[in-house]
Every structure is written in structure tokens, then in C-alpha cells.
Design a protein around this nucleic acid. Structure first.
Lengths: 330, 330
DNA sequence: TCCAGCAACTTGAACGATCCAATCCTGCCT
DNA sequence: AGGCAGGATTGGATCGTTCAAGTTGCTGGA
């Protein structure tokens, strides 16, 4: 069993004091290059790694960021979190941070969890997913000046804090434009009920694309809750209208999948494009709008480390473009 | 901003010494009930929470367990990890532990990561997923006497360490028995090439179920790599045989999905049962064998905390039964 | 009466890093 | 040669907790 290697061990080995070793690590410019090299050699030779607990106790910083792992709701959209988490962990590691998970059944308990995490582990920051209008969590964190970045825009105050988001409107607009270019002058939309930032945004993209192409979006969309059954029902409704759409863009893969079922059983050749590019879409050959989750996660870490390392940086925002993934149904 | 509440603050408030507060937390039986109550009241009143970094520095234990988050390979099976992680985090929290994530592109780098994690954060233990024959990771950990639990059996040495697994053979056997009972005397199997513990196990379950029902499994199975296209190809091959199967059990949902495509385009009414009950299966109405991932995660934490808290407990093993989820294809 | 033995609690030291202030060099100017 | 500025290096204190070694007060047996 290897002996514990502390900063004192390194100091002895390199014939310098503890402080010099500490300086080599935290403020290398203070140390003469020759000495610095000797210390660094010792660090490598001994396999020294700073004890985070001790460092944290002195500095009050843990180099730990927290992310909530949600109970997989739908299942279909669950993989979104999965890919996001992986990207987050990878980028965080590169910046010398680690990702810690926590769960919370609801918003109140989540805020309670912040207290636990902060006082027990002195977490440096949070990455918050799935924000909505007037989110109490961001208010709580902002009030206490705890660094955080959200994945998802604060729709009511766009510049309130740092966030990363994917331009959903651009995604649905691209999907719509693709269908319009392919000759579908009546491209419909199945989306969520008005009121959710994300849902409204995705509908707006479809609308804008149609208007840009000189077409009238009226009567070509349906609002429904998310889900396969709901998507199927919405598609039936659209097809039953006096002037049915000849192509469909959906706010989610779940809705798109439901729509596909309806269309298949009706024997109608109406192309459908979903949103999120979930494995299900890939499996059944559904075209979909793919969110660059790895990038999004990386930018989240970037913004957060900016807040943590930089001296009082202003909040920054990043809006990423999704990509349209075209497939041919099997 | 609330002042930092340390053990000294509590001690002053409850008119006792630091050590007594520490005892109330870690060894309550040493403190007179009356005093204990007074201290506990003070803890609640002040909202005191032990600083893990300081505790860790003294005890050498961090109450942190690490789990690797893998790059989503297939995508289809990715959600398995997602649900597992959530269960892990939830159960760990209940036992006073936290989950930390790490990534590693390959086994060598993963082992290097252990060193980093252990020396920098003094992690208490690891949960390892996706073990295979003669896994170097478990050997590395065992050699250094670092507590760990695997999700997945060490096929070569069943009692080498603590593990939790799902009885894949029981799952495929149940699926097979279900089809046989429904009158399908020729139930085929699409599985992976021999050599992988998991794959062999799942095939063995199918075989056993057929033999138990007095049927001959010979000529009713195919071996192929995992994937939708591979599943489709395997199904074509089986259907082309002199005595084709009238029902199919598959080693994964990917294979099952491919088989379904073949069957659908061939217009044959052959029921298919997959494995893992992924969201894709749910979406397309594919029957599948569902792994109790929440349970599995909980048992992993249980076994790990046993190793950590208990005094030199022997390794334990847990084998969970999966459940057959029946669906009707849309 | 005296002290062993115990329960209940207190005090001092230590974990390993960083911060602070003091000291040591070195070269350079007078 | 002496002094001095400046940066490089050093020792001591500190973060919040737990461990180890006391101290106190009380009971009970010889």
C-alpha cells in the first residue's frame, strides 16, 4: 500500500518548503523556473495529488458542481439527460471540477437539498435543468449569490443569469423549411399547450418558417399535452380537418411517434419530423431535430467556471443551433 | 447571509463542549439523554450541518461513492444507465452518501481515474457497471482493498466480491415459457455470439425453458452482434430455415426491433419479445423483459454501505428477477 | 474513611492544505 | 564595502472535525 503523499512529502523530496510546493501549484509565476521544475518532478515522481478536503477547508471551495438527476419521466426523453450528464462530467473533469448528483421529488425539496449540499459539501455551483417561468430555484440561488447556470432560458428575464439553451425555434423552422422546400405547402404542427417557454418557442419557429415562405399557418396546428397517445389523437384531428396538412412537424419525438402511428394505420404518406432525436426516433427511422447536448453541457461548464474562477464576471448566455437529422422510416 | 454554523457554535448554544456535540452526532449512547436532547435542539435551531470536508480530513472517509457515466453507446440501451443512476443517487442519499460521476474512454484510463479520485477526494467506494470476463478494474480495486460493488456478475469467480445482477436467464426463460404456453412450440432465439457472460446467460434461459417444456431448441437460434440491422438480418435467416420459428425471444430490444421490421415487411404474424424494456420497446409496443433497475441500484448501495460501515463483512451477492412486460404492437 | 471504577463531559492535538507575515538571498547602486 | 530594494522562500496560524487523553463527580465495596 502506497504511503500517503502530502505536500510535505513533496517538499522534503524537492528540498523546498511546503509553501513553495503550494505556490508551484497555485501561483507558479512566483517560483523560479529551476525550482518549479524540481518541484514538479517531485510531484510526478511521488504521484502527489492535492487533497481536496484539506484544500476546501482552507479555501472554502470544493471544485464540485451539482446536477440534479431527475426521475426518468417519459422514458423517451430520458436519454436527453443521459447525454447531457456525460458531456457535463467530461468537460468538468477537463477544468478540474467534479460532478455530484442529487435528487429531489419536487421544487421545494430541491431547494432544501441546496442547503444540505452547500453546508455539507460547500459546493461551488449548480447546473439547473428544466427551468420554467418564474422558477423559485434560480431566485433562491441568486438571492444567496450562489453561482449557477441553467440549461434552458429564463423566459421572463433573458439576461438575469448565465444560461445555455438550444434554439428550438431555429430547429422547428429548419424542419419546416425542409418540408416546404420538398413541396409541402401545408406543413402542420403538433405542439404543447401555450404557456411553456420551450413549447411556445418551438411553435414560433414553425410559424415563422411558414410565414417566411409566404404561407398561412392558420388552422394547421394543434395543441396537446406530450405523449404518444396524445400525438396520435392530434394527428387524427388534423387529418380530419377540411384542409389537412401534407406534412407534420412535432414539438417532441413522443408526439411525432404517435402521429406516425396514426398516419401508418391511415395509410397516408405524410412525412413527420420530431424533436430531440431520441433513440426511439433513430430506431423507427423518424427524422428529428437533434440538440447538441454535448456542446450544451460543455458550455454550461464553461459559463460556470467563468463565474467561479473569473473575478465577478457578468452573466453570459449561449444559444446553440440544433441540427436536423433526416431519416427514412423503415 | 447566515453566519457559518460550526460544531463550536452549536456547543456554545447548548452549553457543552465541541466533543459532546460530536458525540451526539456520532456516538449518541455516550451522552446523557437530557444533554443529548439539548444539543439536538441546538442543532435544529441553528440549522447546523456537519462540514464533510473537515470530517473527511480527520476520518479519511468522504461519504462519497463514484460511478462511471459511459458515453451513450447504442442509444437504445442508454436509458438503462439513466434509471440506474437515479436509483443509486436516491438510495445513497438515504444512507447519507453522495454520488460522484466520472468518465473514462477505456479501461486503462478508468483505472487511472481511480487513482485520481481516491487521492484527491478519498472516495469511499465504487459502483462498477458492465463488467466482463476477467475485468482488470475489479482486480485493481480488490488488490488495494478498495470497497466496490459491481452491477453485473463476475462470471468467472461468482463469489469474488459483492455484486448485484439481474437473472437474465430467468427473464428469457419466462418470456419463452410465455410463448410456449401460448402455443408456440417453435420459439426461436436471436442472441449474441458466445463468450459474453450476459449473452450466454440469456440464451441459456431460452434453452432451458424449451427443454423444460419437452422441446428441442436445436436449429432455432442465431448468433449475431447487437444492433437493429443485425436483428433484421438474423430474423430473415431464421425465417428462411426449413422449419422456421413461430415466435422469437431476443437478447436485446435492438435485436427485437430489427426482427420486428423483418417480420412486418414479410407480413408474418410472429410474436417477438425483447430484453431491457427500453423506451423504444414501450413506444413501438414491443413486449420485453424489464430489469428492476431501481431495485438493483438500491441493492448496490446497500451492499456497498455494508462493506463501508460494517466491520469487515464478507462479500454478498444479490440476484434479482426481471419482469416480463407484455404489450401489443400498434 | 478511602479510593477504585465508572459515566459524563472537557481539553489539547492532529488531519493536509493555504494564507499571512517575517526572513533570507541576490544583485545593484552609492 | 555597506545598504537597500525586490523577489524567493520560510515558519506559524488556521479552517472544522474527530481522536486520545484528561478531568470531574458520583457510587459502592473494603
Amino acid at each position: 500500500m502506497a504511503e500517503k503523499v502530502t505536500i510535505a512529502t513533496v517538499a522534503r523530496h524537492a528540498q523546498v518548503s511546503r509553501q513553495t510546493v503550494s505556490n508551484v501549484i497555485n501561483a507558479p509565476q512566483l517560483v523560479r523556473p529551476e525550482t518549479r521544475q524540481r518541484v514538479q518532478d517531485a510531484i510526478v515522481a511521488l504521484g502527489y495529488r492535492a487533497n481536496q478536503a484539506a484544500r476546501q477547508m482552507r479555501t472554502g471551495r470544493s471544485r464540485l458542481i451539482a446536477v440534479r438527476i431527475e426521475p426518468t419521466r417519459d422514458g423517451i426523453n430520458g436519454t436527453v439527460l443521459d447525454r447531457f450528464l456525460h458531456g457535463l462530467t467530461e468537460t468538468a473533469e477537463a477544468s478540474g471540477y467534479r460532478v455530484m448528483l442529487y435528487t429531489a421529488p419536487d421544487v421545494d425539496r430541491e431547494i432544501a437539498a441546496y442547503g444540505d449540499l452547500l453546508s455539507a459539501y460547500e459546493l461551488d455551483g449548480f447546473v439547473i435543468t428544466g427551468t420554467d417561468h418564474g422558477d423559485p430555484r434560480t431566485a433562491w440561488l441568486a438571492e444567496r449569490e450562489i453561482p449557477f447556470v441553467t440549461f434552458g432560458r429564463p423566459w421572463d428575464h433573458p439576461h438575469a443569469h448565465s444560461w445555455v439553451d438550444v434554439d428550438g425555434a431555429a430547429g422547428t423552422a429548419e424542419a419546416t423549411a425542409h418540408l416546404v422546400t420538398a413541396g409541402h405547402h401545408r406543413t402542420g404542427f403538433i405542439g404543447w399547450p401555450a404557456g411553456s417557454g420551450v413549447g411556445d418557442d418551438r411553435r414560433a419557429g414553425w410559424r415563422r418558417a411558414l410565414l417566411d415562405a409566404g404561407m398561412d399557418p392558420d388552422g394547421l396546428d394543434v395543441q396537446t399535452e406530450d405523449g404518444i397517445a396524445e400525438g396520435a389523437r392530434a394527428a387524427r384531428e388534423l387529418l380530419g380537418r377540411p384542409v389537412p396538412p401534407s406534412a407534420l412537424v412535432c414539438a417532441s419525438d413522443s408526439l411525432a411517434l404517435g402521429a406516425l402511428q396514426t398516419l401508418r394505420s391511415a395509410g397516408t404518406a405524410v412525412p413527420v419530423i420530431g424533436f430531440d432525436d431520441t433513440p426511439v426516433a433513430a430506431a423507427v427511422g423518424l427524422s428529428s431535430v437533434s440538440q447538441p447536448l454535448g456542446d450544451a453541457a460543455a458550455r454550461c461548464v464553461d459559463l460556470l467556471t467563468d463565474l467561479l474562477d473569473g473575478p465577478h464576471r457578468d452573466p453570459r448566455q449561449v444559444l446553440l443551433r440544433p441540427a436536423l437529422v433526416l431519416r427514412h422510416p423503415a
